[in-house]
Deep mutational scan, measured.
Amino acid sequence: MTEYKLVVVGAGGVGKSALTIQLIQNHFVDEYDPTIEDSYRKQVVIDGETCLLDILDTAGQEEYSAMRDQYMRTGEGFLCVFAINNTKSFEDIHHYREQIKRVKDSEDVPMVLVGNKCDLPSRTVDTKQAQDLARSYGIPFIETSAKTRQGVDDAFYTLVREIRKHKEKMSKDGKKKKKKSKTKCVIM
Rank of each mutant, 00 (worst) to 15 (best):
T2V: 04
Y4I: 13
Y4V: 14
Y4A: 14
L6Y: 04
L6G: 01
V7C: 03
V7T: 02
V8F: 02
V9S: 06
V9R: 14
G10T: 06
G10S: 15
A11P: 08
A11L: 11
A11K: 10
G12L: 01
G12N: 11
G13V: 02
V14E: 14
G15S: 02
K16N: 15
S17D: 00
A18E: 00
L19T: 14
L19Q: 11
T20V: 04
T20G: 04
T20L: 05
I21R: 08
I24P: 00
Q25K: 12
N26H: 09
H27A: 12
H27Q: 13
F28E: 00
F28C: 05
F28Y: 10
F28K: 00
V29Q: 03
E31Q: 13
P34C: 13
P34D: 04
T35S: 14
E37K: 01
E37Y: 11
D38A: 00
S39G: 04
S39W: 13
S39A: 14
S39T: 09
S39D: 05
Y40D: 00
Y40L: 05
Y40E: 00
R41G: 00
K42Q: 04
V44S: 05
V45I: 03
V45S: 09
I46H: 08
I46Q: 15
G48Y: 04
G48S: 05
E49A: 08
E49T: 09
E49F: 03
L53V: 11
L53K: 13
L53Y: 13
D54E: 10
D54Y: 02
I55D: 00
L56W: 09
L56Q: 15
L56A: 12
L56G: 05
D57H: 00
A59M: 07
A59V: 13
Q61G: 03
Q61C: 03
Q61A: 02
E62I: 04
E62S: 06
E63G: 03
S65P: 02
S65H: 11
S65F: 03
S65V: 02
S65I: 02
A66F: 12
M67F: 06
M67E: 06
M67Q: 12
M67K: 03
M67Y: 08
D69V: 02
D69S: 04
Q70M: 14
Q70G: 08
M72F: 13
M72I: 11
M72T: 08
R73K: 11
R73W: 03
G75I: 05
G75D: 02
G75S: 15
G75N: 03
E76M: 15
E76T: 15
E76P: 10
F78E: 00
F78I: 13
F78H: 04
F78P: 01
L79Y: 12
L79T: 01
C80N: 02
V81E: 15
V81L: 15
V81G: 07
F82Q: 09
F82R: 00
A83C: 10
I84Y: 15
N86Q: 04
N86V: 03
N86E: 14
N86T: 02
N86H: 02
T87R: 13
K88T: 15
K88R: 13
K88Q: 12
S89A: 14
F90D: 13
E91R: 10
D92T: 07
D92R: 11
H94W: 06
H95N: 14
H95W: 04
H95K: 12
H95L: 10
Y96C: 08
E98P: 03
E98M: 09
E98Y: 02
E98F: 02
Q99R: 05
Q99W: 10
I100S: 04
K101W: 09
V103G: 07
V103S: 11
V103N: 07
K104L: 08
K104D: 10
D105M: 15
D105G: 15
S106P: 03
D108N: 11
D108E: 10
V109S: 08
V109N: 03
V109H: 01
V109G: 02
V109L: 04
V112K: 01
V112G: 01
L113A: 07
L113E: 02
V114N: 00
G115S: 06
N116L: 15
N116T: 14
N116C: 14
K117V: 14
K117T: 14
C118H: 08
D119P: 10
D119K: 05
S122N: 13
S122D: 13
S122T: 11
R123Q: 12
R123S: 12
D126Y: 09
D126M: 07
D126F: 07
T127Q: 08
Q129D: 13
Q129H: 07
Q129W: 10
Q129Y: 11
A130Q: 09
A130D: 05
Q131P: 08
D132R: 05
L133G: 03
L133Q: 04
L133R: 06
S136K: 06
S136F: 10
S136H: 12
Y137N: 07
G138A: 05
G138W: 02
G138L: 01
I139R: 06
I139G: 13
I139T: 09
F141N: 10
F141L: 05
F141I: 10
I142P: 02
T144L: 12
T144S: 11
A146G: 15
R149W: 10
R149G: 12
Q150A: 11
V152S: 12
V152D: 09
D153N: 08
D153P: 08
D153E: 08
A155W: 15
Y157D: 08
Y157G: 12
V160A: 03
V160S: 06
R161G: 08
R161C: 05
E162A: 06
E162M: 07
I163W: 00
R164W: 10
R164D: 12
K165W: 08
K165N: 10
K165S: 10
H166W: 07
H166Q: 12
H166E: 11
H166M: 10
K167F: 08
E168I: 11
E168S: 09
E168D: 06
E168V: 11
E168H: 02
M170F: 14
D173A: 11
D173T: 07
D173W: 05
G174E: 15
K175A: 04
K175V: 05
K177T: 09
S181L: 12
S181H: 05
K182L: 08
T183C: 08
K184R: 05
C185V: 14
C185W: 08
I187F: 07
M188I: 08
M188F: 14
